[in-house]
Design a binder for these strands. Structure first.
Length: 571
DNA sequence: GCCGTTTTCGGCCCGACTGTTTTCAGTCG
């Protein structure tokens, strides 16, 4: 998809316009469009064909023309011309944390530096001096910024963000004076990858907590340290920000710090129209600066005439409009989950036995689970051939007789072969209660072929769900090229569910794709794809992803009772 | 450059921290 390319160009245009000190609202318009274009999950080609480019928020006549120009010619002439006005080095400098357009331009124009490498050499040798505005501290920070740029992971997985935030909260909550503390930012929104970790606390005496924060053992570097905000880098190169506000401002601060930025801007715009001002301390009347809401998020939304919006929905992707109409869906929660639909045992490549899994799932309060070991052709994962499978299924029968309160369903994760056929014959498939189909080979096939393979598989009457439908591995591999609308149409037509694979580096389907599935009337099943007992806890990630896709209980197979589940799935 | 139950023109979110500056610009979120 060209969405990311175009988003990148719009951001680059914004950078250049910033250097040129153009109208800041024009710059913001490009940034907003870049953000929204990257969030669109259908291809811009398809949107352009339908004449629907201008339905993307922040894309009007001019930008839709530019998108069409890129789609037909592969270039945007405005951008090509703009690039000639600004040396590439200056744009490169702006990728360093703490270096904005002004400083970047200074390096180039006053010092003639032409690359980050050169910049580092000059800075290290102490050759950047006597330039107005660039003191010793600034140089030091720039060197650190370069180091961070080279070393830091570009993003952090949600699961890591959750782990880090929990560790920080555990420590800071012990500091004297801390009333409330919780994670905010993209981790609270459950974005699949996060930039940094934001923590919010309330206290009337923030100093001890701030002290404790910058002195945590995992702190590698303190980036900023103030009475209300501090930033650190951890040993694993993740930035963590701690913000501390008075207890009375907690709700406003939580809303502010949770974001997203786009969502916040919309809220503040609504406030402005009501002659109010919204910031992290509360909502204030313009006429007398009187605070009218601040202590809870609910108060904030209500003061703006909005229904409260769940954190996972706060992306300015239609939730503001839904909140204005008081039509926020009642999102699925972890408590609604009665089953795990994707589990591996020692029979194939899992490390936990069927008994161990059953016991652990029983403790989670599930009423049923599906054991889904790999099929025969996936040799690397010890896929089950028909003979071993026969014994495996017997074991499930035996275990079902022994245990109470949990039903173990017979399932399999069956490879979808190159021609779209499944890795077991129908005579075998009919013995399962629930069959999951997976693409494990031929990722690089062209879009049409891959889509056709999946559609063919869905037409098999024994196939109940497609596992990790796009095959993405966050940070390692883009999803394979598939035609999502066509997959959804076929899924709907064949009563095949699509999976949210809850593995931290998959979270596939994504929240946005879940929304499309919901709109298309396609059921979603959440599977942890557990290979170890501990993996069962990934269900949280799956549910959070479902919430990002606006899913309610009725969109998710795992919320059904055993009886309703068996009735709902394909026979 | 976008956008409109007060508008097709004239608005466009708001504050913290840093560094080098003596009152504020730059950067970030």
């Amino acid at each position: 998809m060209k969405n990311q390319e175009i988003s990148g160009i719009f951001n680059a245009i914004a950078d250049i316009l910033e250097i040129k000190e153009e109208n800041r609202f024009r710059i913001r318009a490009y940034r907003r469009a870049a953000f929204n274009v990257s969030a669109v999950t259908v291809s811009l080609d398809d949107l352009a064909r339908q004449g629907a480019l201008e339905t993307i928020p922040g894309v009007g006549k001019d930008l839709s023309d530019k998108i069409r120009e890129y789609l037909t010619t592969g270039k945007i002439s405005f951008y090509e011309d703009l690039k000639k006005e600004v040396p590439p080095a200056v744009l490169e400098f702006m990728s360093i944390q703490g270096v904005g357009p002004k400083t970047a331009m200074l390096f180039y124009s006053k010092l003639g530096i032409k690359s980050i490498k050169e910049l580092r050499e000059h800075a290290a040798l102490g050759e950047i001096k006597d330039v107005p505005g660039l003191g010793e501290k600034t140089i030091e920070n720039i060197l650190r910024g370069i180091e961070f740029l080279e070393k830091a992971s570009k993003f952090t997985l949600l699961s890591d963000g959750m782990r880090i935030s929990e560790a920080v909260i555990r420590q800071i909550s012990l500091a004297p004076g801390v009333k409330k503390i919780e994670v905010a930012g993209s981790t609270r929104r459950a974005k699949e990858t996060i930039g940094d970790v934001d923590i919010l606390a309330s206290s009337v005496t923030p100093e001890p907590a701030m002290e404790a924060f910058i002195k945590m053992p995992e702190v590698k570097e303190v980036l900023a340290h103030g009475p209300t905000r501090s930033s650190i880098i951890t040993a694993e190169n993740v930035q963590v920000d701690l913000r501390i506000v008075p207890p009375g401002s907690y709700g406003a601060a939580l809303a502010y710090l949770t974001g997203s930025k786009a969502h916040n801007i919309r809220l503040r715009e609504i406030a402005v129209k009501k002659n109010l001002k919204l910031n992290e301390y509360g909502i204030f009347r313009n006429k007398d600066n009187k605070k009218i809401a601040s202590s809870t998020e609910k108060e904030i939304y209500e003061a703006l005439g909005l229904a409260p919006v769940q954190p996972e929905m706060r992306e300015d992707q239609g939730e503001i409009e839904a909140a204005l109409k008081h039509a926020i869906p009642d999102l699925v929660t972890l408590k609604d989950i009665r089953s795990d639909l994707h589990l591996h045992t020692t029979a194939s490549d899992g490390s936990a036995s069927m008994e161990e899994l059953a016991e652990a799932c029983s403790k989670k309060g599930y009423t049923h689970i599906v054991i889904t070991d790999h099929s025969q052709s996936l040799k690397v994962a010890r896929g089950l051939d028909p003979a071993r499978l026969k014994e495996h299924l017997k074991k499930i029968d035996a275990l079902n007789k022994r245990i109470k309160g949990l039903r173990i369903l017979k399932g399999a994760e069956v490879d979808i072969l190159a021609d779209g056929s499944l890795d077991y014959d129908d005579s075998i498939l009919e013995r399962f209660d629930f069959v999951i189909g997976s693409i494990h080979t031929g990722f690089k096939q062209p879009k049409g072929l891959l889509t056709g393979r999946i559609v063919t598989a869905m037409k098999n009457k024994y196939l109940n769900m497609i596992a990790h439908p796009t095959g993405r591995l966050l940070g390692k591999r883009e999803g394979y090229e598939i035609d999502i609308p066509e997959i959804l149409k076929a899924a709907r037509g064949t009563n095949t569910a699509l999976e949210i694979n809850a593995y931290p580096e998959r979270l596939d389907l994504s929240g946005m794709n879940c929304r499309l599935a919901k709109d298309a009337g396609v059921m979603i099943g959440i599977g942890t794809d557990s290979h170890r007992l501990g993996d069962l806890d990934y269900m949280t990630l799956g549910v959070r992803t479902a919430r990002r896709g606006w899913l309610t209980r009725k969109n998710v197979l795992n919320t059904l009772t055993l009886q309703a589940f068996l009735k709902k799935i394909k026979k």
